[in-house]
């Protein structure tokens, strides 16, 4: 987490503008096995360290970002648009 998040579209913006969803996991294929789906919906690595997380720039460009950061130090390594890419460092 940071007090400010580097949005690839809007620049460094305060945390208050964002909504956080959780781990940036890929959605399994619709026909993937039940175990894969349960893992996707419920199970989390919950790492102590580097972590990719979905953040939504709700009060900004309204794009979903993958924010890469450290859960122990709160350092933000960067963020990219989930669909468009464009890695941005703080």
């Amino acid at each position: 987490m940071a007090s400010r998040v580097p949005c690839p579209h809007c620049g460094l913006r305060p945390k208050e503008e964002f909504t956080i969803k959780g781990a940036a996991l890929p959605r399994p294929a619709p026909d993937a096995g039940e175990a894969a789906w349960i893992e996707y919906v419920y199970l989390r690595e919950n790492p102590r360290g580097a972590y990719d997380e979905f953040w939504h720039h709700t009060s900004g460009c309204r794009r979903w970002l993958v924010v890469s950061r450290n859960t122990l130090t709160h350092d933000v390594y960067g963020a990219r648009d989930v669909a468009l890419g464009g890695e941005t460092q703080p």
Partner: peptide, 14 residues
């Protein structure tokens, strides 16, 4: 809660 995963035992000003 602040809303983000954290092990830092500290939060932010917002």
């Amino acid at each position: 809660i602040d809303g983000y995963n954290s092990y830092a035992q500290r939060g932010n000003l917002a």
